[in-house]
Design a protein around this nucleic acid. Structure first.
Lengths: 144, 144
DNA sequence: ATATTATAATTGACTAGTCAATGATTGATT
DNA sequence: AATCAATCATTGACTAGTCAATTATAATAT
């Protein structure tokens, strides 16, 4: 296999491993999973959202959203109520408890991210960000 | 939350999504999962390996390795035999069938990767590779 | 008004990882 | 030689996603 292809494959391998490591470490460090953090954070910024809106923002399957929210609701971190105007929808909202959780893990999270990127310049971070955006678009196009 | 931290969080989010997309698309495109492709490819290049050696190269859990190999063995893509010199070890080797599979998916794979990086310059790819290596190291350090 | 279609959430069955416990074998210590 | 510790593979129970089928509701067309 030619070198360029080998390199790309290697990058995919690294993607997988970095994601796994980061996800694991984030939870150890902050006490909340990265996805559930993301859900709470999105709700904090956007206010009330239906599950489908949340799904579109987070780009994970609706089934996964439903299950996460069930757990977050059990822990009193979100409220869920049917939309009176459209009974198909469930409207989700963060609770005070949920906000407190976000605040609590904030300094851990910051430290965590700082460590991860400690040997990156600001410019490098920008470049990475830009390249990731391109890959998001390209990988999104490949099917559907 | 400050902007830099927000950006980093966003990158982690993109990591997750790119990995998911790529993994999914790769399998659709080539007919084999990226991890199992990686296992076969590693065996092709390294010859016989014990499961623990494979585990160290792929950096995924031993349990996952065992399960993948079981399936690959059922499909006659690898051989597995206890090491006579050390009966704790299982020695794994790719079969001719396994090599054929790798060859078959090769052009699909190449096209797949080309599409994914179609708007990247060679230099950008190199930079990305370098940054991913740094992130691998950094994320590996954060715990154990 | 009724039948059809579309949308939103849920559930079940699946894949691919994790960790922790277990079993078998080997190596080291006394 | 017998015990104790370490190593390797396996298994079971778990998390977090996927897809496909189901249910309930809303919107549309006849």
């Amino acid at each position: 296999m030619d070198q360029s292809c080998e390199d790309v494959k290697n990058m995919m391998f690294m993607f997988k491993n970095i994601d796994r490591q980061v996800t694991q470490n984030f939870e150890k460090c902050t006490g909340i999973s990265l996805t559930r953090y993301e859900i709470l954070y999105t709700l904090l910024n956007s206010g009330q959202l239906s599950q489908i809106e949340l799904q579109k923002k987070l780009k994970i399957d609706q089934a996964a959203i439903t299950r996460h929210l069930k757990i977050l609701e059990e822990k009193n971190l979100v409220y869920r109520n049917r939309n009176k105007q459209n009974n198909r929808e469930v409207i989700v909202e963060i609770t005070n408890n949920g906000m407190a959780i976000l605040e609590n893990c904030d300094s851990n999270k910051t430290q965590f991210f700082d460590e991860l990127f400690h040997d990156f310049t600001t410019k490098e971070k920008q470049q990475l960000q830009m390249m990731l955006k391109k890959l998001m678009v390209n990988s999104g196009k490949q099917t559907g």
